[in-house]
């Protein structure tokens, strides 16, 4: 009996691994299809009299971007000051405090601003997207769209995806500015470097390549957040509890995807 049970549990485990793998591959497939279809509708929609509505894109952009300005600003400023504190502390060992500006400029534009903005938008808007699509699914609203001849990808997914791709890099740029300015204020107080001198050092340190690196990365994060949210929302089963699970799952998945992509992107681009 014991042998039989062990064998059973081994089979069960193997079966579960198999099922989860298939499910994972399915979700990747769905994610790819959604991205392709969204761009298809953006380009071909107007010809089929089914355009992606600009008003919907603006509404999404306001929610994702404008409404997040305050919290992104506060966090970017905090991260900027934190980087300045750590930078000065570390460089003091070598007596090279004044070189802190170079490190601040590079790390804020290349790494911290895109990452913190991505994580914030994933928690704020990615989860909201998953919850909205999930709720619409269990209320049959997605079916209702389909039977009215309104493609849900065109109507719901494309506007969210496009708004993300515009607003996440925009927010990232905003948080670079705010973060570096806040760091400047700290550096000014701590090292007595004038703000004007600080800012011209920042501009000397940051290259176009640094900006492109950070903003390009944030555009990829934007696609990840939107698609992870939609895929999790669309996979909701089992009522309100299911929506809660999908929302949590979408935040965890999106943040994991962002951090892993960040590392891969840095590895590939700096080679």
């Amino acid at each position: 009996m014991a042998v039989k049970q062990t064998r059973g549990s081994v089979f069960d485990t193997a079966e579960n691994i198999g099922r989860n793998t298939v499910r994972g591959v399915e979700e990747f497939g769905l994610a790819g299809v959604l991205v392709v279809q969204s761009f298809y509708w953006l380009v071909a929609g107007p010809r089929q009299r089914q355009p992606v509505r600009l008003s919907a894109v603006f509404a999404e952009a306001r929610e994702i971007g404008i409404n997040a300005l305050l919290i992104v600003g506060v966090l970017a400023a905090t991260i900027g000051v934190m980087l300045a504190i750590q930078g000065i502390f570390t460089l003091r060992i070598f007596g090279a405090e004044s070189r802190v500006v170079f490190g601040l400029a590079k790390s804020m534009t290349r790494e911290f601003a895109p990452l913190i903005t991505g994580i914030l938008v994933a928690g704020r808007s990615g989860s909201a997207l998953a919850a909205r699509i999930g709720t619409m699914k269990i209320n049959q609203e997605l079916d209702a769209l389909s039977v009215m001849g309104i493609n849900p990808v065109r109507y719901l997914v494309a506007p969210a995806l496009i708004a993300m791709i515009i607003m996440v890099p925009a927010l990232t740029f905003f948080s670079e500015l705010v973060g570096l300015l806040a760091a400047g204020v700290y550096v000014n107080l701590e090292l007595d470097i004038g703000l004007r001198a600080y800012w011209s050092q920042v501009l000397d340190s940051v290259t176009i390549d640094d900006l492109a690196h950070g903003l390009g990365k944030s555009a990829i994060f934007a696609v990840l957040i939107a698609i992870v949210g939609v895929v999790n929302g669309a996979s909701v089963t089992g009522g309100a509890e299911g929506v809660g699970r999908a929302t949590t799952r979408s935040v965890v998945h999106a943040i994991s995807a962002i951090i892993i992509t960040d590392m891969l992107f840095a590895f590939v681009v700096t080679r």
């Binding site: 049959q140 609203e141 079916d143 009215m148 001849g149």
Partner: peptide, 30 residues
């Protein structure tokens, strides 16, 4: 299929009205 769906109407069990729109906006959507 889109053209066919303009010629049929569906009333779902839950109503499936879009909660972010008013009743009139829901009705005008098609």
């Amino acid at each position: 299929l889109v053209d066919m769906r303009k010629r049929i109407g569906v009333a779902f069990q839950t109503g499936a009205l879009f909660s972010s729109m008013t009743v009139a906006e829901n009705i005008m959507l098609p």
